[in-house]
Design a protein around this nucleic acid. Structure first.
Length: 630
DNA sequence: GTAGGGTTAG
């Protein structure tokens, strides 16, 4: 470093004075570090060139855009420029706009432009200051800026229009964004894309699709935004269909498109399509950005292929420099119950000085939870703020409640909730209620139920848990009351749904579903299967029946119609002996199904991989990878 | 002599 520095200075010292201005400018542009930049700054000051707008601008550019950018330094430099030109003002507004906590500085600088009678803000000024409004300030400030744009006749400028659309959409007012869009005199591809993005951001894919279909022309951003929107709201099959259409008639997908498409594959457990994308990335030479790598890892992990996920993680040269792929891999290990692998990876990450973020800790704490690693979990939780400067958020407290609750430490879990710095929500009480149900502590369950009822009388998930807890302890009246309350609230319980892919087609089953063309065959197979399982020692877990049925035989029937059993029966009927069966369930697998599937894996000699809402269960030869702890 | 858009994990 020292050496660099001296060559740097010598190189400038001996140039002729005539050349020095250009030399200095070139030198400023070539700075590769803060140290070099400071040298250049010093030279500009001693030569007096700093007073000239062009060298000052070059320096400012370094301070706001380079890898060693420093906003405070930029601000100091800016404050010393006697009369900045509009470009310099704009550069500063832009620099402050990109960070949420300094976006009010953008507005202050904008105001100083307005005070300077020799300057009139231009389209760039408005674009940058509106960006600050959409990221940190707010809609009120945005409105004020809009009035100034009107005053100087720039409101209908297409760049300003687009910035306004984005400002309104980001501030949560998609209707205002639409008004700007509809009334704009000039509109380009960007306007359409931003408007679609605005709808997607508010979860309104219906309107987004409407605009997408009506567009005069679509580019890769239009397609990517639309596909991402569909994935975000869970319309995964539609997202894949749109992607197929894109391949046939649209522009070439890029790394952003494929990130979303892989997320769709991951959540559908569409392993074949996910693999196809992987090959496509290599074949077409898609840029392997860290987020794409993370999606690829996540896809393999969520499709049950943790080894392939690990190969991808270790395989890509020159990657793993950001937290993304690490989080995907730690999360993958966690959902496969590979707690120690997750912890090892976290330790490696620390050694490589890659800073963990809040997502890392969610994954890590989940790993501890699934492995019943109570002490490790507590330790890592404490380390969040003490070693990494990350304040635990409610999700992290939720992980701790889950970890302790699942391990049977109900009291300690409750103490965590009562002591945490934020107000508990229905979700976190729900985690504890779930633990009460597992450990059949109805006394505490009752108390928590009361808390949930007060907090959020219509939280469906928690009320379902509550009803389940009541019915599994035989308190049918109370169970019924809760269920009626759920129904009267107008919201319906998410029905349990399991799906299985067969030759690229997804088959979905609900509880007691009779809509499938092979229904008759499936139900006959189920009856026969239940007999075979019983002969092998399977005993139905009747406490899992959630309806008030007196007859024990009927209880058994209710259990045997659970969606995961239907999907497995379908898989056993339609695939060759020995092929693994992959099932995805949208909720958690029940105790009885878990027990039954263990027997199925043994009796039918099949590997069965079930992904529930939280994690994987790998059933093989009568055993499950979760070791019955989930 | 420059400056505007899209992915975001549980």
């Amino acid at each position: 470093m020292r050496r660099c520095y001296s060559t740097f200075v010598t190189a400038t010292k001996f140039k002729s004075p005539l050349n020095s201005k250009h030399q200095l400018l070139a030198l400023t542009d070539s700075c590769k570090s803060m140290d070099q930049m400071k040298q250049a700054h010093a030279l500009l000051v001693t030569t007096g060139l700093i007073l000239h707008p062009i060298p000052a601008t070059r320096l400012l550019k370094l301070l706001t855009l380079s890898s060693f950018a420093s906003l405070p330094y930029a601000q100091l430099l800016f404050d010393q420029i006697p009369s900045p030109d509009l470009f310099i003002y704009n550069t500063m507004i832009k620099a402050h706009a990109s960070t949420t906590d300094s976006s009010c500085s953008s507005l202050l600088i904008f105001r100083s432009i307005l005070r300077d009678s020799s300057l009139v803000p231009n389209q760039y000024t408005f674009v940058f200051v509106l960006k600050a409004c959409s990221q940190g300030l707010g809609i009120r400030e945005g409105q004020q800026v809009r009035v100034y744009a009107m005053k100087v006749g720039l409101e209908s400028n297409v760049f300003v229009t687009n910035a306004l659309i984005q400002m309104y959409a980001n501030c949560g007012s998609v209707d205002d964004a639409r008004m700007v869009f509809d009334w704009s005199a000039q509109r380009d591809l960007f306007s359409w894309n931003l408007m679609i993005g605005g709808y997607v951001g508010s979860g309104d894919v219906i309107h987004a699709k409407e605009l997408f279909d009506a567009m005069p022309e679509r580019d890769v951003v239009s397609w990517s935004t639309m596909i991402a929107g569909l994935v975000q709201v869970g319309c995964l099959i539609e997202a894949l269909e749109l992607f197929r259409e894109m391949l046939q008639t649209g522009p070439k997908p890029n790394e952003f498109t494929l990130t979303s498409v892989l997320a769709a594959c991951a959540n559908l457990v569409a392993l074949d399509q996910g693999k196809w994308i992987h090959v496509y990335i290599d074949k077409v030479g898609i840029k392997m950005i860290e987020q794409l790598l993370a999606s690829l890892i996540d896809m393999y992990a969520k499709c049950g292929e943790i080894e392939l996920a690990s190969n991808v993680f270790h395989g890509e040269a020159g990657t793993r420099k950001t937290v993304w792929p690490w989080n995907a891999m730690i999360g993958g290990f966690a959902m496969h119950g590979l707690s120690h692998e997750a912890i090892d990876l976290f330790e490696q990450m620390k050694m490589k000085s890659i800073g963990p973020n809040k997502i890392t800790f969610v994954a890590l704490l989940n790993a501890c939870s699934h492995g019943k690693l109570v002490e490790e979990g507590k330790w890592y939780f404490k380390s969040m703020s003490s070693c990494h400067g990350i304040e635990p958020e409610i999700e992290h407290y939720g992980c701790m409640v889950d970890l302790l609750g699942r391990a049977g430490l109900l009291k300690e879990a409750e103490e965590i909730i009562l002591a945490m710095p934020m107000a508990p929500d229905a979700v976190i009480w729900g985690a504890l209620l779930g633990a009460c149900r597992i450990h059949r502590d109805t006394e505490m369950g009752d108390r928590i139920a009361k808390a949930i009822k007060e907090l959020d009388p219509y939280h469906v998930g928690c009320h379902v848990l509550l009803a389940n807890m009541y019915s599994s302890s035989g308190r049918w009246k109370e169970a019924k009351a809760v269920r009626e309350k759920i129904e009267s609230g107008g919201t319906k319980k998410t029905p349990g749904c399991s799906s299985i892919e067969l030759n690229g087609v997804f088959h979905q089953f609900l509880v007691g579903d009779r809509s499938h063309p092979q229904t008759k065959q499936i139900y006959l197979f189920l009856d026969e299967m239940t007999m075979k399982l019983k002969l092998a020692g399977y005993v139905p877990e009747l406490r899992e029946v959630l309806l008030d049925i007196d007859d024990e035989e009927d209880k058994e029937t209710a259990l045997s119609r659970h969606s995961e059993k239907l999907a497995i029966a379908f898989g056993l009927i339609n695939t060759e002996h020995g092929t693994p069966i992959r099932i995805v369930k949208n909720l958690r697998v029940c105790q009885d199904c878990h027990q039954a599937i263990k027997f199925i894996s043994k009796v039918y000699e099949r590997e069965i991989i079930v992904r529930d809402r939280i994690r994987f269960h790998h059933f093989r030869n009568g055993q499950c990878s979760c070791r019955d702890y989930w």
